[in-house]
Simulated assay, not measured.
Amino acid sequence: MAEKLKRPLLLVGCGKMGGAMLEGWLASGIAAAGAYVVEPFGADAFANRRDVTVVSSVEELPADLSPQVIILAVKPQAMSAVVGAYAKFATPDCLFVSVAAGTTISFFEAELGPQAAIVRAMPNTPAAVGQGITVICPNAKATAQQVADADILLQAVGETARIEDEALMDAVTGVSGSGPAYVFFMIECMAKAGVDAGLPEDLAARLALQTVAGAGHLARQSDDTPDQLRRNVTSPNGTTQAALDVLMADDGLQPLMTKAVAAAANRGRELAG
């Protein structure tokens, strides 16, 4: 079992990402000291749990609450209207973890005070099934133990990685934060291509979904690199090679993916102002 927090955690925002993370924390036992959720639009899935207290605003939290970790999981566009109310918790022994895309550490330091210990994190939606990956970047005030606490929390919903240069977080967003949507769209495109080739719609959808899911699982389990796995399934002058000649052309998938990731990264920088 993962190491348990000694004091409660406080989750601000309980949408799909926040809810997925909270499910992981409760299941793993990390939140053994209890969890508080501030969610004005309801968190029905947790409302009847004895180990979770759901309130609609920060004013409804107990006056003596001393959270060990505060997770900020509201949308980036709403963060400036929300975060200032939590400055009262910004003591050296309270860690703030933000999962808001494009919202910088310097923004939180300005809102919470220069003494605030902050870890900026970029998770992705496979966290909902415990298969996410989250990249974290701490500020100078976060202690080694607090960074370890953030790592333990985020490992409850998948893998973690750490960067020291916050400027890389926009590229992380472009690859892994937004990346699941690219894969889902690829499934859509493969299914549509199958229909265009004459397959029934339900069969094309099933083939596309299981092929992507199975290929991803194989890539995780195999000792071979994706490049080698691609070569393993590609016979010279065969059907796969014919398709790859299109996908690997100068105007094929790679330049399109590079452009897509760059667009996401640029949008992250725009959100940061």
Rank of each mutant, 00 (worst) to 15 (best):
L11V: 14
N266M: 09
V129W: 05
A249Q: 04
L72P: 05
G34S: 07
I133A: 07
G130N: 06
I133Q: 05
D93W: 01
G24N: 11
A148E: 06
V233Y: 10
A171T: 15
T225R: 01
S106T: 15
A181V: 15
Q228C: 07
C137E: 07
P40T: 10
D170N: 13
A208L: 07
F89M: 12
N124T: 04
A81P: 12
S80I: 14
A215H: 01
K88L: 10
V38A: 08
D224F: 04
V55G: 06
G132V: 01
L26Q: 04
R230F: 03
S222R: 12
A110D: 07
K88E: 04
L229H: 00
Q221W: 10
A272H: 07
L271M: 14
S235W: 00
I136K: 03
R220W: 07
C14L: 03
F185Y: 15
A35Y: 01
T125I: 11
C137A: 08
L203K: 02
F96K: 04
V82H: 01
G42R: 00
T53P: 07
A45V: 10
N237F: 05
I133D: 11
W25D: 00
L207Q: 02
V12D: 02
V119F: 03
A47H: 12
V54F: 03
A101G: 13
Q77W: 08
L203M: 09
A156D: 04
A150P: 03
A87M: 09
K192R: 09
Q77A: 14
I30N: 01
A204I: 14
D151Y: 04
A213D: 06
L72M: 11
E23H: 13
V74N: 12
M1Q: 08
L256P: 08
M186G: 06
V37D: 00
A100I: 14
R162P: 01
Y36D: 11
L95G: 15
V135H: 01
